[in-house]
Design a protein around this nucleic acid. Sequence first.
DNA 1: CGGTTTCTTGATTGGGATCAATAGGAGTGG
DNA 2: CCACTCCTATTGATCCCAATCAAGAAACCG
Lengths: 210, 210
Amino acid sequence: MDVADRLVFSRSRLRRGDCLYRAGERFSSLYAVRNGFFKSTAMLDNGRDQVTRFSMTGEVLGLDGIGPERHSCNTIAVEDSEVCAIPFAGLQALAQEIPSLQRHFFKMMSREIEREHGVMLQLGSMNAEERLAMFLLDLSQRFAARGYSRSEFNLRMTRADIGSYLGLKLETVSRTFSKFQEQGLIVVQQKWIRIRDSAALKRVMGRERN
Amino acid sequence: MDVADRLVFSRSRLRRGDCLYRAGERFSSLYAVRNGFFKSTAMLDNGRDQVTRFSMTGEVLGLDGIGPERHSCNTIAVEDSEVCAIPFAGLQALAQEIPSLQRHFFKMMSREIEREHGVMLQLGSMNAEERLAMFLLDLSQRFAARGYSRSEFNLRMTRADIGSYLGLKLETVSRTFSKFQEQGLIVVQQKWIRIRDSAALKRVMGRERN
DNA sequence: CGGTTTCTTGATTGGGATCAATAGGAGTGG
DNA sequence: CCACTCCTATTGATCCCAATCAAGAAACCG
């Protein structure tokens, strides 16, 4: 029996600013992003909330909810978007019967651990330029993986969102973009970015620290 | 058939400084810490490596290896320790047959995502005092959960390890401990710590930021 | 013991936060 | 289409926390 026959995939559209799910809500589905762009924010103990990830077409949202059975972050569309909801109960039952699906799942979750881990880890020891360089290269690579241009794209999010994600203030983000532009690494105009010298960006990112 | 009948749990002892597994090695087992204390370090792209977690008795090590099928960090005993190796292949096969085990597993991994996430996230927006306060309270809580004293314990790791984990330099760790001691929040003498006012530490940790 | 690692404390520096002011776009309604 | 407002981005000036450099002291260990 085919997976698609057993699971009901419901699609839904969201407009810019709409919330896909909120922290604390009961977890029931994973979401595949069909198109658009999302940001997830987590409320820290102190009340401020921080952007924890950006998600684009082809990526899966909601894995964080499986353990606690509640969503642990808010996920908001930063532009008009469309998602496909995958009921987790059904997926889990199916994994019980299909070994390869279970394996796939274990792997996907483990990779998730990895990814978050990796990004956040690196940030800790990086200065502003390194963070921004990493951010741009990460976006570039993900756009490329989805068939979009690797060197030219629109940042869908604001400077404040980028800053929150990277642990910088929006002024620093802006200043650093300007600096990169002066150095000829990128061209930036508002949300539009063109990467002119990705090798140099990699060098900025990899600058050794001690 | 009982789980213990199907899985071979092999125990091994490690001495201070011994390596349980290294990044890049083929992943085959998870490890339950029976006693002792471990630190995990991950090599960043730039060559420096950073402490990513400390693990104590009763905690599970190695989840990060499931996806890539290789360990992605080095794990080293910081004192004489003993672990129990759990072959992952067997565990996976068993999860295929026992729904509750599969569920338990999904949850454990998801919680792992959460935990790392939470800690690292918070760090980004915290200053040195807040980081140290959080670190002490986290350790205190974990010791308490294992039946040890909540208010008095030995830090097994060095100041440099703590600093690496928290994204601070060892001098800052030392200075901040001293400051806490002056304020009467803790008593510190080398690796020995006594928490005198955990409420105050919580207040330090929760100090609002903007 | 001497040698090594670990910890503490002081002096100075620098990168990013903060405060502040202006400019640029986007959306709305007349 | 323009005028108005709001949100977002840029840039400058100043300040502060933690890094860095440096020197000792304390503990650990063969």
